[in-house]
């Protein structure tokens, strides 16, 4: 069932922010003859996920920072559905004047295309990428006292290893599938509706392993209920410094979820520049940095064109690997 979020919510939240941001407006434009400077009104920030998930929380944190820095309200509007494709379609079709922006997920462009039919694929060409935001890494976990004590035990598995994922066509599924594929182990994906049920299943020993976002698993790893087997980042991550990467353990698998700010294709450069300015100011605030840490997010504050390059690379790489190991992300196998 879909979760409930509201435009009313966004409007109320937005007006609260607008009140808070009044000072900013008057000082940045006061006395200046540049009346048309962006943003002149409130900017809708679409999120393709329900309230409460990490995509939503990140958008809300950035929205707060942008309105503080640029002096307008940036109400967050949840348009959940189809892994974010519904929100993406709406942004792509919006007026390219900066009044509609969205932080989008890499998985929608690099991984979802592997699982859905051709005409449902969202293309990054419909957007201008403003700037990278942050990276959300995956960790493969198993329950303490379960059949696999470490990654070597998984690699040596003779039977089928079941793994819980956060859904079909997600980075969680790709990371586990690629890892088992490259280790030559038979795997069976068991998709759940999001991180919480997948976490429950691995804690209860319903599945042998699961690939989860670090923020979802970190508490249970620290308390010793879950054993981390590997992370999928290029180098070890700050929040789990003792967990070796897949590459360290001899498996060439690298998967990450990252998010970046997008605007409709053809948005004027000065608007994009202002947004970059606002983002950089946000990234420097202590609140935002504390937010990243609390949610186990790694900053990925790189320019938009680098994000696009990485997206294209990742998409190509995943497609090749999936092909190589004969993984069918969409099918039941």
């Amino acid at each position: 069932m879909r979760h409930h979020t509201t435009r009313l919510a966004a409007l109320l939240g937005g007006s609260a922010l607008a009140l808070a941001a009044c000072d900013g407006v008057s000082t940045s434009t006061g006395g200046s003859d540049e009346t048309a400077e962006y943003p002149s009104g409130s900017v809708e920030m679409l999120v393709g996920a329900s309230a409460g998930g990490s995509s939503d929380l990140i958008s809300r944190a950035v929205s707060q920072g942008l309105s503080d820095a640029l002096g307008a309200s940036f109400p967050v509007i949840n348009r959940e559905g189809a892994n974010g494709a519904i929100a993406a379609a709406e942004v792509a079709a919006a007026e390219p004047d900066g009044s509609t922006i969205a932080i989008q997920n890499a998985s929608l462009f690099a991984i979802t295309p592997l699982a859905v039919s051709e005409d449902e694929v969202t293309s990054i060409d419909d957007f201008d990428v403003v700037h990278g935001v942050s990276r959300d890494d995956y960790v493969m976990v198993t329950t303490a006292g379960g059949p696999y004590a470490d990654l070597d035990a998984v690699k040596a598995a003779t039977g089928t290893v079941t793994y819980g994922t956060t859904g079909v066509g997600t980075g969680a599924q790709v990371s586990c599938a690629l890892l088992l594929g490259s280790a030559g182990v038979e795997g069976e994906a068991v998709p759940f509706d999001g991180g919480a049920p997948a976490l429950t299943a691995v804690l209860g020993g319903q599945v042998d392993t699961a690939c989860l976002q670090v923020g979802e698993a970190v508490e249970n790893i620290e308390s010793g209920k879950l054993v981390p087997l590997t992370v999928f980042s290029p180098e070890r991550i700050e929040y789990l410094p003792d967990v070796p990467t897949a590459q360290e353990q001899g498996l060439d698998v690298e998967v990450a979820q990252y998010r970046f700010l997008t605007v409709p294709k053809g948005t004027p450069d000065d608007v994009v520049d202002r947004l970059v300015e606002g983002l950089q100011a946000t990234f420097e605030t202590e609140e935002y940095q504390a937010f990243n840490e609390q949610n186990s997010l790694t900053p990925m504050e790189i320019p938009g064109d680098e994000v696009v390059t990485q997206l294209e690379e990742d998409k190509q790489r995943y497609a090749e690997l999936v092909e190589e190991y004969g993984i069918d992300l969409g099918g039941d196998s």
Binding site: M1, R2, H4, E80, G81, A82, A85, I86, A89, A115, V116, S117, D119, E120, G167, V168, G169, P191, D193, L329, G330, G331, D332
Partner: peptide, 21 residues
Amino acid sequence: DSFSGAERFTFDSLQLSDGID
């Protein structure tokens, strides 16, 4: 379909891709 990604009774509408609330 949350297991195979196949569309069921959605008539090519993205609005129906997550089912009905």
